[in-house]
Amino acid sequence: MKRTSKELIVGGIRTDKRLPEQAREIKMKVGNIFSANGSAEVRFGRTVALASVHGPRPLFPRHLQESQTGILRVRYNMAPFSVVDRKPPGPDRRSIELSKVIRLALEPALFLEDYPKATVDGFIEIIQADGSTRVTGINALSLALASAGIPMRDLVAACSIGKVDGTLVVDLNGEEDNNSEADIPFAMMPNKNLVTLLQMDGILTKEELMKLLDMAKKMCKKIYEMQREALLEKYKGEE
């Protein structure tokens, strides 16, 4: 819902000088956390997500183990200093829900049935937030899983789309997010054409929704290419 009187799109240009279908500058780096089996850092403009993966490793306490399959556990967390007003540390209702939907966004890409009784633990820390944090986190955790050497059906690429000042846009920043008419976090496995995260709030017609989903799919293909580049960059020269 719009809470500011400021025009967020003037002459087709957004407040950070972007076109509606243009994402912010995206940076990806793989393998920045030595102590983890896999890790990555992804930046969408000022939003910065760190992700690491520990495992597959034995799951304790034992009663949590599944005899036929491994499980994926995900924790999404925002650092207290990542937002303008300090966020008290620890999980809140939002982060509990996001941890769940992020887990479900990545699970379809894994072969968890290959790791009975084990767990793959994924951790996302948002250290600086300027909108679209969950999708930035998904991109980072997808890279971290791949760099942990965990076999995957496909990478998971994610972006946000929405409607701001009546215009359909890609990759909402914090100000756009807070004042949007609708926003949609979206993730998919681009090569499998499977959507693994789809949430929405706001008001949209079906036609607008369909247009936005097409924009999201296009952007996810671009993000996938960047993820691939980032992985190749990390492992080039290694044999």
Partner: peptide, 27 residues
Amino acid sequence: REDDKICAMQKQGNKGIEFDFIEKMVD
């Protein structure tokens, strides 16, 4: 909503949805 506008969505379940299926589900 009663004007057929969509006001919230959430994908659940542990498999993906084929992209082209979403429109059918919305309908």
